[in-house]
Design a protein around this nucleic acid. Structure first.
Lengths: 198, 198
DNA sequence: GCGCTGACAGATTTCAATATCTGTCATACA
DNA sequence: TGTATGACAGATATTGAAATCTGTCAGCGC
């Protein structure tokens, strides 16, 4: 009854992530995953109905891990504008770090995002929900003036696509990027602000 | 001395656009273009140093044509916020129309945009310049409050990438799109506004 | 019985031979 | 002299046969 030799979805995902990192999305096969686990590929199909579902599960794990620090930021306390700015900057930084450190997984994510698949949609919705939470706090604090929080959260997400959508990843390394991010965030934050009492 | 049989860059571009439309970017060859003009492909190389330069020239023509109505809007008169909104909505509409009506040329443009090639950079800079012009008008009218017009124009361009960058074209047809555009534009315009005197 | 195996059919990918294309240039023609 | 040609070398794309992969399932061993 050695725990290590029991074939669990978790172990399969682990192995799949390794295989994807090693061979890349294009080359990785279910047979490779099975080989890495020293089982037949039929066994893998006992836990995941298709290669696509396996790939999606890996992507979900990867995205969830990447999202963790953002969840913490969203439920934090303090002035909403600062928190939103920090949240967005962190989101950009996480993506930028991933694209450098884990390019194979990032390419996988890019492929997924381009297919506009379910997993990515769910992930985006989660992001928008987190933004919405900060916006609500801001409204409660009287620093944001917003009609429809959900729609505005979506608008904030849309306005910042350029710095979190993998399709634009190539541009993130350019030297003028930080200044452009500053300008964009300033514009967005001003758009949310309640009129100043001075 | 029949004008019609003189081989000019203009005639070559015309033919190239036809060939691209007919075969698509992937299949179109310089030989096809030469055949369409009933000349040898060597003659084409007399006017364009490479296939890439020919493709870029076609793209430039296509982009310039698409840009024309936007230039007119930018130099118009009237309240800047309305003009900016109209300008952005027109920009979105043009792109959306192109992606429906002229999908082959749009695919060519997408390929160019993904390569981040010179022609597209110049086109983007032109767009930002036009936005900047409207923003300046707004500052003069006292309806916009902006520190750095150039940077802010860039920020407005960046904030709206989702609806003019071809990488996101698939999403433009979705039913929730118009509402999201409304929310985004409202956010951006509020971010530009000078504080209200009430 | 339960979980795994491995053979299998059909779909997809690889690979190398073949064909086509790009870009050059010596030559022809007007 | 200025413009177009077509043959050519090297690079790239196409093709079809062979190899590999995906997903299924009857059966094996614990």
């Amino acid at each position: 009854m050695n725990e290590a030799v029991v074939l669990t979805p978790e172990r399969i995902l682990e192995a799949t992530e390794d295989v994807l990192r090693r061979f890349g999305l294009a080359k990785a096969t279910v047979v490779d995953v099975a080989r890495a686990l020293d089982v037949s590929h039929g066994s893998v199909y006992r836990h995941f109905p298709s290669k696509a579902s396996l790939r999606d599960a890996v992507a979900k794990r990867w995205l969830d891990r990447a999202n963790e620090p953002l969840c913490k930021l969203a439920i934090g306390s303090g002035p909403a504008p600062e928190r939103l700015e920090k949240w967005l900057r962190t989101a950009f930084a996480i993506k930028q770090k991933k694209v450098c450190d884990d390019p194979e997984m990032f390419a996988t994510y890019l492929a997924l995002a381009q297919d506009a698949r379910e997993v990515v949609e769910a992930y985006k919705d989660k992001q928008v929900e987190l933004i919405g939470r900060i916006l609500s706090d801001g409204v409660a604090q009287g620093v944001f003036q917003i009609d429809d929080v959900k729609m505005t959260a979506r608008a904030v997400f849309d306005a910042t696509v350029r710095y979190h959508h993998p399709a634009h990843a190539e541009e993130w390394a350019k030297p003028e990027c930080p200044a452009r991010i500053d300008a964009l965030l300033a514009l967005v934050l001003r758009g949310l602000e309640a009129p100043r009492k001075h």
